[in-house]
Nucleic acid binder design. Structure first.
Lengths: 325, 325
DNA sequence: CCTTTTACATTAGTTTTTCTAATGATCCAT
DNA sequence: ATGGATCATTAGAAAAACTAATGTAAAAGG
C-alpha cells in the first residue's frame, strides 16, 4: 500500500549474529556467554532476537542437548566466513594494534604502593582487556606511542598533545612506627622531632620545607640516613629506625595496616600530584577510556575509604584494623 | 601482568561497521543516515566509535569533501564482501521471508472506515516496514501463513495457536443525517423510530435486538431497505434516506465529520469486538510486534480523542468540527 | 569579498537496546 | 526419584545508540 524502498542493505541484527555464531560454534549458550564475557541469559536473548527477526528457529533445544537445526546449519558457514573476513580486514587496517592489550607505564613506587593491589579489580571489571604494566623510573614519552596510558607524578603540565586527568593530590607528613611512638623519646609536637632520627629520600620530599611550614626551626636536617627509594624510607621507618617524611599516597598502605602511624596531624600539601596521562590520539580508544575511568573512580572511592580508616586508627592506635607486621 | 586469553573472535563493533560501510559507499554521512533511517549525528558517532576502536581514522574530512583515507580503503572491500555474505546467508535461511514487508488482512469495512486513514502514521513511525494491506471479505487463515497479521471482528476466540489482542469494543446505536434530525419527523426517543425508515445491513447488526434492549416494541423491523455492506448503510443514512443502526467503529468518521449524528444516547454494547490476530509463531517478529503495538496504541489514543469530539458535537450539533460532506 | 548553503562535529539529554540476576522449567544421569 | 546441568523467562539496571540543537568549516553564489 505504502512503499518505501531504500536501496541499502538488509542485514539482520549484527550483534545477534555474533551471539548466534558463538553459540553455534560451542553448541552451548553457556560457553558462548563465557567467550563473549556476558551471561547465558544475554546469549539466549540475542539468539531469540535473531530467530524472531529471521522468522525461523535456528537451534533444536531438547533439554540439555543443543544442536543446529536445518536453518541454523544453513546460516552458520556463510556467517563464519563473513566474520573471518571482517577480522581479517580489521587486522589489515591497523596491524600491531590490539584493542585487548593495554600498556600502562608508572613509577615503581606508585606501582607497588597503589596500583598493583588494585589492578585485579580492573581485570575483573574488564575481562576483555589485558593490562601490560611497566614499572620503571625511565621517563617515557607517551607521545611516542610506546604506551597507551601512564600515571605520572608532577605539576600536571607536560608538553605535547596529551589528555591529562588529575588522579590524586599528595600531602607530606611525618610517619614512624607505633613502637617508636610509644617507647621512643616524646613525639607529640613537630618540635619534638629534634630528638629523633630523620629519614630522607632523595626525591621530591624535603624535611626542610616541611619543618618550615610547620613553624619549627633549629633542627638539623642534614642528620640521618638518605635512601634511594621512597618505599625504602617508609620501610625503614616502619622498622623503627626513625621518622620519615611520607607522601600520603605511598604511605597509605602502611597507615592502613598499622605499620606506620602519624605522630601529628599537620600535613603539608605537596606541590605535585598524580595524573593519568595519555596521548590525545589514543585517549578515546575504548580500552584507554575504560582504564582512565576505572582508575579515577577507584582513587575517588579509596580516598573516602582511607580517610575513614585513618580516622579510626587515630582514635584508637592500639588496635590496627589489619594484621600489621 | 594479568592475562586472559579467550579463544573467540575479535570483531570490531558490528553496528559501527554497518554505519561505516554505508557512509563509505555514499561518501556522505548524511546519505548514509537516510539509508539507515537515522540522523546524520548517529552516523558521525558510529564512525567515530569505529575509528577509536581501530585506533585509526578511516575518512579524510576536509570540510564538505569526504573521502576514504588509506585505512578506510583497506577496510571497505573486505567488509562489503562480509556483508554480502551475511545477506546471502540470511536469505538462504528463510527464502520468501522479508522482514521489511508486513502483510495485513482486514475486512473492507474496517479498512475503509478506520485503518486506511491511520496507516500513514505507521509508515511514518516505521519507515523501514512496507505494509501490504489486503482488504477482503474472504475468511483468511492466519495459521496458514498467508498473512503476518490481521484485524478480525468477532468473539475473540479462534482455533489455532494465535496471539490475540483486543483492539476495540463495538457499540450499536442509531445514526441519521443531521438534516433528517432537524427537518424530518420527531426523533427524540427510541419510540420515535416508528415514524422513520430503518436501514438494514445483512451482517451482525440487528435492529430487533437493539429495539428490544432499548425497551421499544411494536416496530416493524422488516420495513426498509437492506444493503450489502455496512458502509453503504451508513452512506445511505448520511444521504438522509433513513436511520441506520451503526457500529461505533465504522460510524466514527461520519460522526467526526458531522455527516451523521446520534439522535439518542442509548447504545447497545456489541457482543463482538475487533481483535489484532497473528499466528503465535510470527507474533514476535519485529515487524509484527511493531504493527501490533502501533495499532493498539493508536486505537487507545483515538478512543480518547473521538469521545471528546463526539461530546463536543452533541453539545453543539450545528458546527461540525470538520468540513463535512 | 561577503553571504549563504552544505555537510560534518559536538554536546547534552532521551530513548532503545542489551545485559544481568534471579528464578523457573526441562532433561539427563545417577 | 534426586541432583546437576542447561536453556527460558522476567523485571529491572546498565550501556549503547540515537536525536535535537548547535557549532564549525569549506565551497558556492552573488
Amino acid at each position: 500500500m505504502i512503499h518505501e524502498t531504500g536501496p541499502g542493505r538488509r542485514l539482520p541484527p549484527l550483534n545477534a549474529l555474533r551471539s548466534f555464531e558463538a553459540a553455534a560454534r560451542h553448541l552451548s549458550f553457556t560457553r558462548a556467554a563465557v567467550e563473549l564475557h556476558v551471561t547465558q541469559a544475554a546469549i539466549s536473548h540475542q539468539v531469540r532476537v535473531l530467530e524472531d527477526h529471521l522468522g525461523v528457529r535456528l537451534f533444536r533445544r531438547r533439554g540439555r542437548a543443543l544442536s543446529l537445526n536445518e536453518a541454523g546449519q544453513a546460516l552458520l558457514p556463510g556467517l563464519q566466513e563473513a566474520f573471518d573476513r571482517i577480522e581479517e580486514s580489521a587486522k589489515k587496517v591497523h596491524p600491531g594494534h590490539d584493542e585487548r592489550v593495554l600498556t600502562v607505564t608508572v613509577q615503581p613506587s606508585f606501582a607497588g604502593a597503589w596500583l598493583i593491589s588494585r589492578l585485579p579489580r580492573f581485570a575483573e571489571r574488564h575481562p576483555g582487556i589485558d593490562v601490560k604494566l611497566s614499572a620503571s623510573h625511565d621517563r617515557v614519552d607517551l607521545m611516542r606511542g610506546d604506551f597507551d596510558v601512564g600515571v605520572r607524578f608532577g605539576p600536571g603540565a607536560w608538553p605535547g598533545e596529551l589528555r591529562v586527568d588529575r588522579l590524586m593530590d599528595e600531602d607530606l607528613f611525618p610517619v614512624c612506627s607505633p613502637a617508636l611512638l610509644e617507647r621512643g623519646p616524646p613525639l607529640e609536637r613537630p618540635e619534638d622531632l629534634r630528638y629523633h632520627t630523620l629519614l630522607h629520600d632523595d626525591h621530591v620530599v624535603d624535611w626542610r620545607m616541611w619543618l618550615l611550614a610547620a613553624g619549627v626551626s633549629g633542627i638539623d636536617t642534614a642528620r640521618g640516613p638518605m635512601l634511594n627509594f621512597s618505599d625504602l624510607v617508609l620501610q625503614s621507618a616502619a622498622a623503627g629506625h626513625g621518622v620519615a617524611l611520607a607522601r600520603s599516597v605511598l604511605a597509605a598502605r602502611y597507615l592502613a595496616s598499622g605499620e606506620l602511624v602519624r605522630p601529628f596531624e599537620f600535613s603539608l600539601p605537596g606541590k605535585y600530584a598524580y595524573y593519568v596521562v595519555s596521548a590525545a590520539a589514543k585517549a578515546n580508544q575504548p580500552k584507554v577510556r575504560k582504564f582512565r575511568e576505572w582508575i579515577l573512580e577507584v582513587s575517588r572511592e579509596d580516598a573516602v575509604h582511607e580517610a575513614a580508616v585513618v580516622d579510626a586508627l587515630r582514635a584508637d592506635p592500639a588496635t590496627p584494623r589489619d594484621g600489621g607486621k
